[in-house]
Each structure stands twice: as structure tokens, then as C-alpha cells.
Simulated scan of single mutants.
Amino acid sequence: MSVPESFTCHVPDEAIADLKQRLARTRLPDQAPGEPWSLGTEVDYLAGLIAYWRDGFDWRRQEAALNAFPQIRLRLGEVDLHALHVPGKGPSPRPLLLCHGWPGSVFEFLDIIPRLTDPARFGGDPAQSFTVVAPSLPGYGLSFRPGQTRFGVEEIADTVADLMAALGYDRYFVQGGDWGAFVGTRLAHRYPGRVRGLHLNMLPLRRDGTAAEDATPEERAHFDRLALWLKEEIGYQWIQGTKPQTLAFALTDSPAGLAAWIVEKFRSWSDCGGTIESAIDRDRMLGNIALYWFTGAIGSSFYPYYARMHRGWPIPDGGTIDVPTAHAAFPAEMVRPPRSLAEKVFTDIRRWTVMPKGGHFAALEQPELLAQDLTAFAAEL
């Protein structure tokens, strides 16, 4: 384990020029029949996004937004782990581990971090501030290098636990969605003494089975939604979980292909009403995509899917999560189990907030609502 060193992100000018040249040479497919987006990313939308990415998008501005926060890098096992480490402004900031998912990155957190570290700036109580640690998960973005060992949820959880220990945090709060929710839940299961509270905007419950004979109407509705989602929405999981290397060739070589693969998820999983930019800022979304491009990390980012499909569930059969837990239930989240099912795994649910708006990318879509709920949960504890 190494000593944390200060880090600043800087992409070489040559890499930016190469990206623009590749975007200029994009060869688009024809538009498939049927309703736009019904068979995947719409051609006209992507053509417009590519043109903007090439001629209007300013990577240096997004890079500066990232570099506005203190960052570190340290060696943990086989990974040079990158993280934002932002001290709280208040009398006694509480340590908080923020974990992103796929196809996200630390860019998800740039708008929520100030609300957590400096609540007084937004009309909140400075006594409720957090010191935020937001790592690029191993294999993602600035925590990737070619040839690096691939990690599943279990190894990622162990690595971020080591990160918090290296920074001197023995007890801390954890917040996560997508793979971040899996990582946080695994942390709470494996290291319950370290997790003061677990806040999730996605519940990582098993996604198999059917409603029991005595299931409530709410539970039956959940399993009906789940069956439809498993039929129509998880093709990406099968390819990323079985033949990730093959897909990596295309998305590592073509920025247009990379954008098409990722923006379809931003549209499908956000509360955008069909228009991505109504929920997620276009520049922030492209900053996230560009980070995958410049780091070449899209292939390694698939590995948690491969590990998930070739291992048992990250929480062993019969295992429970017994630390204080909160769930922010956003209406456009892709899988929304009812509380009655969540309580079979999470035995100490202290807070369950039904949100008025928002989807899978909660920190990007609704940073204020997510920060408020997380702060209220921590205050209750």
C-alpha cells in the first residue's frame, strides 16, 4: 500500500486532436425501421451528438471541473487507484464513500459533492457536512491501465475498503447506485463494523424468481416489471458478461460507437421523457463518455458483468445486511423492488424516501434531492 499522492487530470492535446479526427471520419449506419430508439440509439440523434462532440464540446472545461476538487492516487495491491478526496466544511465532517457504477464515472458526482461537503453554501447546516471520498472504481477511468488485473464486485469492495483505511477512516457512510450499490452492499456485509450507514438509490436484490403465492399486489407488480426488463433491457449484460473482449475492440476504436453504446443507457435509464438533455447536461454526459475514451477503460469496465455472470451473488445465500440502511426510491429507476422484499435482505431500513422525479443516475439527474436525503439519513443516525 502506497502513500496517497496529489493528482491532476490532464489529457494530452494530441489525444484530443486524435479524437476529433476520428469523429470527423465517423461512418454511420442507416436508421433501422420502426420507432426511433426502439431498436437502439437513433441515428439522427447520434449524428448531432457527434457533431457537437467534435466542434462544440470543450474537454478542457470538463477537465477543469474535475480538477476543481482535490484528487489523489495511490497504489493498492495491483491497482493505482484514483479518487476525489474533498474535505468537508463544518465543525465535524463525517467521512462518506461515494461509489459510481456503469456507464458512469466520478463525473456523476461533480454537482452533488459541493452540496455534501459545504451544505451552508446551499442554505444547509454546516454541522451536517461530509468529507467525501469518491474513487474511480478499479478498472474504470483514471483507475485503469492496460494489462491491469480485472476486478469483480468482491475485489472492488475490498479495494475501496483498503482506500478508506489508508486515508484513516475507520467508520464511514457509504452511498451508491448501480455497481456502486453492489459495492456498498458488499462492504456492509463484509465489513459491517466500518459502515455507519448505507444509503442506496438502487437496491441490489436478486433478479430472478417469480412472485410467491402470497405476494402482495405491489410485489406482483414488481415481478411483472422485472420480467419485462429481463426480456427487453439486458442484452448489454449478456455481451458484457460473456464476450466483453470482442465488444471492447469496437468501442475502444470508435468514439462514435462508444457514444452510441453509452447514450442509449442514459436515455433508457434516466427520467428524461425521451430527451436525454432534459435530465442530464449534455456536456457532463460527454465528459463522462470522453473519460472512458481517453483512458481506454471501456473494456475493463465490463468485467464486473463477467464476474457477476460467472460467480455467485455478491451477498451469499441467506446473507443479510444489518447496518442502518436508507433507500432513495426514484420513480424511473429500472428495477424498483418494494420495501417488503428489500426488508428480507436489509434488516435495518431506517429511511425509505419515494422521490418525486429522477432515474438511475440520481447524482447526475437530481443532486439536490439525493444530497438532502443522504444528509437527513446521516442526521437521523
Rank of each mutant, 00 (worst) to 15 (best):
S2V: 02
H10G: 08
D13V: 13
D13H: 12
A15H: 11
A17D: 15
Q21H: 11
T26Q: 04
L28H: 10
W37I: 08
E42A: 15
D44F: 11
Y45N: 10
L46Q: 05
L46A: 01
L49I: 12
A51W: 11
Y52N: 12
W53Y: 12
R60D: 04
E63F: 00
V79C: 11
G90M: 07
P95M: 05
L96H: 01
C99T: 11
W102K: 02
I112K: 00
I112M: 03
P114E: 00
T117W: 00
F122G: 10
G123K: 09
G124K: 08
G124I: 09
L137V: 05
L137W: 01
P138A: 13
Y140V: 02
R145Y: 12
T149Q: 15
T149E: 14
R150Q: 14
F151M: 15
A157L: 10
A161Y: 12
D162H: 11
A166I: 10
A166S: 14
D170Y: 09
Y172K: 00
L187S: 06
Y191E: 09
R196I: 10
M202H: 09
L203M: 13
L205C: 08
R206S: 10
A211E: 05
A212R: 15
T216G: 04
R220V: 05
A221F: 03
H222P: 05
G235V: 12
T242G: 05
T242P: 03
K243T: 14
L247N: 13
A248L: 06
A248K: 07
A248P: 06
L251S: 09
T252F: 06
L258P: 02
L258N: 05
W261Y: 15
K265M: 10
F266D: 01
R267D: 09
S278C: 14
R282W: 05
L286P: 02
I289Q: 01
A290V: 05
A297F: 06
Y303Q: 12
Y306P: 01
D317A: 15
D322H: 08
D322N: 15
A328D: 05
V335Q: 08
L341D: 09
L341P: 07
V345I: 13
V345T: 15
T347R: 15
R350F: 07
T353C: 07
T353D: 14
V354S: 13
P356S: 13
H360V: 02
L369E: 06
